[in-house]
Write a protein that binds this DNA or RNA. Sequence first.
DNA 1: GTTAGCACTCGTTCATGGTGAGTGCTAAGG
DNA 2: CCTTAGCACTCACCATGAACGAGTGCTAAC
Lengths: 354, 354
Amino acid sequence: MNAQKLSDREELVLQAVVHSFITSAEPVGSRTVAKRFSLDISPATVRNVMADLEEAGFLQQLHTSSGRVPTDVGYRYYVDFLMRIQRVTLTERTQVEGELSSKLDDADSLLRQTSHLLALLSHQTGIVEAPSLGDAEIRQIEITALEGGRVVVLLADNFGRVRTMVVSIDTPLQHDDARKLTAFLNDNLRGVSVDRVVSAMHGKLESFADSQRRLAEQAVQVLNFIPVNSGGPLFLDGATQLFEQPEFRDVDRAREVFGLLEERDRVVDLLRSGTLGLEDGDSERSSVVIGKEASESGMSEISVVSAPYKVDGKTVGRVGVLGPRRMPYSRLSGVVEYTAGMLGRLMSRLAGNG
Amino acid sequence: MNAQKLSDREELVLQAVVHSFITSAEPVGSRTVAKRFSLDISPATVRNVMADLEEAGFLQQLHTSSGRVPTDVGYRYYVDFLMRIQRVTLTERTQVEGELSSKLDDADSLLRQTSHLLALLSHQTGIVEAPSLGDAEIRQIEITALEGGRVVVLLADNFGRVRTMVVSIDTPLQHDDARKLTAFLNDNLRGVSVDRVVSAMHGKLESFADSQRRLAEQAVQVLNFIPVNSGGPLFLDGATQLFEQPEFRDVDRAREVFGLLEERDRVVDLLRSGTLGLEDGDSERSSVVIGKEASESGMSEISVVSAPYKVDGKTVGRVGVLGPRRMPYSRLSGVVEYTAGMLGRLMSRLAGNG
DNA sequence: GTTAGCACTCGTTCATGGTGAGTGCTAAGG
DNA sequence: CCTTAGCACTCACCATGAACGAGTGCTAAC
C-alpha cells in the first residue's frame, strides 16, 4: 500500500512539507509549500496534491483547518526515496578528527568520546553500542589475588578493551597459584571468543591430570563470572539536549524518553531494529527507525538514525542518534555514517595493535 | 535575624505549614492549619501568627489571596529545630540489607547499588560520592604489558576498589620487565596514598643505582597518568523520578536540574556545602542544603539531604538524595543516615579484607 | 489540468464575569 | 491583652463568548 510510487509533483510536495516541518516544527500549509517551489504553482493546486497525499497516508492533519504534518509513512518515503544524504562539512570533519585522535589509548574512552561527538554534531542524544563482550576475542588474561579471598580477573580483548572483574572464591589463591593460573589461561584461551570460554575450558579440563585439577576448577569458577549478555555496553551522551526540541516541552513525553534511555535493552533494540529487513549488501549504510516503526519501544515520538561500524571488515556495533521524529534525517545520516566510519578506523587501529 | 527563637505557637504553625505543604504541594491556608492542631485554635488566630511568620521571613505568599509556603529560612528553621528524624522502618531495613549484602565483592558495584537504593527509598535522585581516588591507599599494583606498546596499570586500593588505566609508553615493555616493575612498585608504594605516589617515588629514585634507572623512569611515567582529582567518582540513580514531582512539571526547571546532574563538580559541591559551618562533632549527622543556600548551584528549587560515611572511623565520602525543596526532610534524613551507616559498615568490611 | 474565489472550520487570543479559597482588618468577647 | 467572629477584599482559576486568522475543501471559470 505504501510501496506505491508517487508522481513527481507529489514527491516535490512531500519533500517540501518534510523540509519545512523539520526546520519549523509547525504544521505546513499550502501557501508555504507553494512559495518553496522553483516551479511556479498555486496554493490551490498544492492543496489538491496534499489532499491526495493525506488520503494515501503520507500526510496528516491535526485538525480540519491546520497545515499538514508528515506521518511515519511520509517520513519513511522521504528517507527511502527523496532525501540525499548530506556529507559532513569540512569544519565538522576537522572537529571530529581533533577530538577523537587524542583518545587512542583506551577503547572505552574512544567509544565514550564518540557518543559525545555524536551529541555535539547532532544536537540530539548520541548513542554508541560497543562491541559485545561475548563476541570479543581474548588477547590476554591476568589473574591477580587480592587479600581476603578476592580475585581480580583482568581481560584484554581484541578491541583493545581492558575489563576487570572482582570475584570472591572459596579457596584462597596464593600469589604463585595466580601466576600459574594466568599462564595456564593465556595458553589455552588466547584467541578464543569470550562466550566460548566455558566450552573451551571444558575440552581442556579432560586432558589434564589430577595435579592441575584444583587449578583448573578455580579457573572455571572464576571465568563463570564473565558477563556474556547479548548486546555490547552502551554509551549515551547529550540526553538533556532533547529538552531543546519543542516536542519534548511536554513533560510526559520527555519523561517517557528519559525512561527509555535508562533501559539499555530497549535502546539496543531500537538501534538495531532498523536493519532487520536489510540484505547484507546494504549493511554498511545508515538506517532509520521512525516513530511507531519500532513497536517494541512503544514510543511514537522518536526516531533513531544509526549506522554500523566495522573493525577489520566485520560489523561489531552501531552508532546512532536519537531524537524527535522531526529530525534532519539527511544531515544526520551523513553524520552517523561518517562517525561510524571514523570509529571503525580508529578501533581497527587499536585492535591492530592488540 | 533568622537566628531568632520563635514562640511555641509560631513553631507549631510553622511545622504545620511545612508538613502540609510537603505532602500536598499546595499553598496552605489558615483553615487547613487550624484543623491540623491538637490544641483547638481558630483560623483567625492562625492568620495572625502566619502574618507574623511571613514578616519574619519564614513564610511566603505567592499572591495576596493564597495560602502560604515555607521559604528557605522557614525550611531551615524546621530542619534545625523542629523536625524529629524519622528512623527507617523495619521493612525498609530488611530491603536494604537484602539488596546490599549480595554486592559485597566489588566496591564499585556496592556504591552503585547504594545510589540505586537511595533512589528507591527516597523517590528522589540518589547520590553516592565514592572515596576520592587521591586519598586512597595503594594495596596492590599490577603492571601488565599489552601488545602494541600499551600498558595496563591495575591498582587495588584500601577500599577494595580495583581500577585500571591503559597508557601508551614510548619504550615497549617486555613481560619480564613488567613483572619486575610490578614487584618494584609493590615494594615501594604499598600503603602510600595515591596522591603522594609521585613524591614517594622521587625519594626512592635517588637511592637507586643506574641498573634500576630505566625501570624507575618507566614507573614514574606510568604512574603520572593516575588521575588525582579533588572529589571521588559519583554514582547517581533515579534522576527520572524527579519528573514525578509537581515542581518539575515545568520543563525549564526540569532541564536545569538535569543539566546540573550532568556536571559532576557542581553535584559534589552541593553534597558537601551543607557541612561547611559544622564543627567536627556534628560531622556524622545528616546535613541539609535548601534551595538558594547553595549559591554555587544557582538552583533555587532543589534541596539535598546528605550524610557522610566512614570507613574505619574516617569520613571518606558522602551519600545523599536530591529533590525539590519541598522534601520529606525528616524521613529522608533518617534514610540517608541509615544508608550512610550501612555503606560505611560494608565498605569497612571490604577494606578490612584488603 | 490549473487556479481564483469563497464559505467554512477550528485553534488561538483576549476580554468578561462568576466562583471560591484565602486574606487583613475591625470590633466584640473572654 | 489575647482570641475570635464577621466581613469586605483580593486574586487565581475557570468557563463563556467574540474577534481573528491561518488554512482548508469545493466550485466554477480559465
